[in-house]
């Protein structure tokens, strides 16, 4: 017999390395026509940091997104980055990028200020132009300023950014510590169908709401949420490195043995992004990469309970565990 149920789980996730002390640096170099090189060593493992960091640099410098090139492939040219983990790159490397872009912008502002007969503090940059705050008709083209800075004034238009949260070690007695930069929040509902004859579970849908502070790129945020949901389905129902908790028996040797969800296993996913800006992230951003894999599994287990009235306390919830739990319930 097939039974359906829904389940809820929520969660939080810290941004950046727990305990702080993790650095990212960025260099922003403006070319003579106002094009921008963003140079760093933050790694794009698919999450899309080249896109997001280019957006942050473009926003801060006031140039279009397609005028920013990201050079992140080489430790000879790129400054230090701790790496892509701990949901840290948008936040930490993003802050470094913003700071580097601001420094480069200040060089441009110092030159534009003369042209516009205004003080650098009164200038803003957007859409490829530098203009006087409140008087957008008083503007100059960023490309022209970059050209003049380079050839007229013999300047190197380079900005540097370095972000590192002050380390915080836990108190050995109480664990008192200030370990993270900010927290992001999650709420997920799962709907499942359970076959009480065979123990098979089908996830029918996952609905996800996430606070990401500021979604620098909602498309990429959705990509993280959907991918994490898929991983959550795997953890909830099928993936198991050491079946029977015994490491010597039946270790998975192929992707046929270690099964991860296929397109047919991941249900339709609906997503809503909530934005509660952080006080310290670039444009209010928080980390989103990791947390998306967390709430789906307990939501699915709760949905199974809703369907058949049993709690299964060990992941993954295989058909065997479902049948055993149903038998124990009688």
């Amino acid at each position: 017999m097939k039974k359906r149920g829904v389940g809820l789980a929520v969660g939080l996730y810290p941004t950046g390395m727990s305990g702080g002390g993790d650095s990212s640096q960025a260099v922003v170099k403006v070319k003579p026509d106002g094009s921008v090189d963003l140079i760093l060593t933050s790694v794009d493992i698919g999450q899309g940091c080249k896109t997001v960091l280019a957006q942050i640099a473009a926003e801060e410098l006031g140039v279009p997104y397609d005028r920013v090139d990201v050079v992140n492939d080489d430790t000879d040219t790129g400054p230090l980055c701790f790496g892509t983990f701990a949901s840290r790159v948008t936040f930490v490397a993003g802050n470094a990028t913003k700071e580097a872009a601001r420094e480069a912008k200040q060089i441009l502002f110092s030159i534009a200020a003369d042209k516009l007969e205004a003080s650098p503090e009164d200038l803003e940059a957007a859409n490829g132009k530098i203009y006087v705050k409140g008087a957008p008709e008083r503007s100059v083209d960023i490309g022209a300023i970059a050209g003049e800075a380079t050839f007229g004034l013999r300047k190197v238009i380079v900005g540097r950014g370095h972000y590192m949260r002050t380390p915080s070690a836990p108190d050995p007695a109480t664990g008192k510590t200030d370990p993270f930069a900010t927290l992001a929040w999650a709420a997920v509902q799962a709907e499942v169908e359970v076959d009480t004859d065979t123990g098979e579970v089908t996830v029918l849908r996952l609905d996800c709401a996430y606070d990401v502070g500021r979604a620098v790129n909602p498309l990429l945020v959705e990509g993280q949420i959907e991918g994490g949901a898929g991983m959550g389905v795997g953890a909830a129902l099928m993936e198991q490195l050491y079946p029977y908790k015994s490491p010597v028996k039946f270790p998975a040797e192929t992707f046929g043995d270690y099964v991860i969800p296929t397109a047919m296993d991941v249900p339709d996913i609906r997503t809503v992004i909530y934005e509660c800006p952080s006080t310290n992230g670039p444009f209010g951003a928080k980390g989103i990469g990791e947390m998306t894999a967390n709430a789906p599994a307990p939501a699915i287990v709760a949905a199974i309970h809703d369907a058949i009235g049993v709690w299964i306390d060990e992941l993954p919830v295989t058909p065997e565990k479902v049948l055993r739990a149903l038998q124990a319930k009688g």
Binding site: K50, A54, Q55, I56, E59, Y65, F283
Partner: peptide
């Protein structure tokens, strides 16, 4: 904001 918050296409 002009670029941040936009669904720009993936850089690569």
């Amino acid at each position: 904001l002009n670029v941040v918050g936009q669904r720009v296409k993936r850089y690569d």
